[in-house]
């Protein structure tokens, strides 16, 4: 037995105090964890995922934000440790099998136009697209979106920033993007590009799902998320929730 640097009674008292302290600290942390609200986000934005996450964290103090880069991870996480809320395009929430409780609107519309930005003179018929619904559901989504009779050859990417390289490297002859992204993309490149419009090519804007747990959590989170259209409206393409 090693010698104690103090009396046995003092040592026992000290140990008991430390144990109580640890238990209190642990309890506080658990209580804190219970109180913090959680949000999962999976939205294709022009910014890099880390920058998007930083902006969300800044806009939503007290909310634990997790940004996903791949639909498959978003879907499996939604099925596992469900968050208090999820922010994603309407099609992504539907593909993940969760209901939509609030829809993002811009200029009075809950949907936005998608176009094909194509490279002049390219013979490549493959279309580049950001994967927002998962590999297996993507061809059907694109076919519906563009009103085609059969699925085109697709090259999917994980984020909108990876679409321009598809054109630069001739992996695709055109890319499918929200019409509001055309100006930003054109500003970046000197490629000769043109816009192809498709009648009825609309997809739902960013939307919200709440886990609808009892108590005030949903109200708290709804209040927090009210700020998003104001502070991140241009990133998300929305000006209000309805």
């Amino acid at each position: 037995m090693f010698p104690l640097p103090c009396s046995r009674r003092t040592f026992l008292r000290g140990s008991a105090a430390a144990a109580v302290g640890c238990a209190f600290e642990f309890g506080t942390r658990r209580a804190g964890a219970r109180e913090s609200l959680s949000l999962f986000a999976f939205v294709p934005v022009l910014e890099r995922p880390q920058a998007f996450q930083d902006a969300l964290v800044l806009a939503l103090p007290g909310v634990e934000v997790t940004v996903f880069g791949r639909f498959v991870d978003f879907k499996s996480s939604m099925q596992g440790r469900a968050p208090d809320a999820a922010l994603a395009l309407g099609v992504s929430l539907e593909a993940a099998g969760v209901p939509i409780h609030l829809r993002g609107y811009a200029a009075g519309s809950a949907t936005e136009e998608y176009v094909v930005l194509a490279k002049q003179g390219s013979q490549n018929t493959t279309l580049g697209v950001t994967d927002v619904v998962g590999r297996t559901a993507l061809p059907a989504m694109v076919t519906r979106l563009l009103g085609l009779s059969e699925a085109p050859a697709l090259q999917r990417v994980l984020k909108p920033a990876d679409l321009l390289p598809l054109l630069q490297l001739d992996v695709a002859g055109g890319v499918i993007i929200p019409a509001r992204h055309v100006v930003a993309l054109r500003r970046t490149t000197e490629l000769s590009l043109y816009v192809r419009r498709y009648s009825g090519a609309q997809l739902s804007r960013a939307a919200l799902h709440f886990s609808q747990r009892p108590g005030t959590r949903e109200t708290l989170l709804r209040n927090s998320l009210e700020v998003l259209p104001r502070v991140m409206g241009s990133t998300l393409g929305i000006d209000q929730w309805k």
Partner: peptide
């Protein structure tokens, strides 16, 4: 041989 489609910058 295909190019890598995404990069970390």
């Amino acid at each position: 041989v295909l190019p890598p489609l995404a990069a970390r910058t």
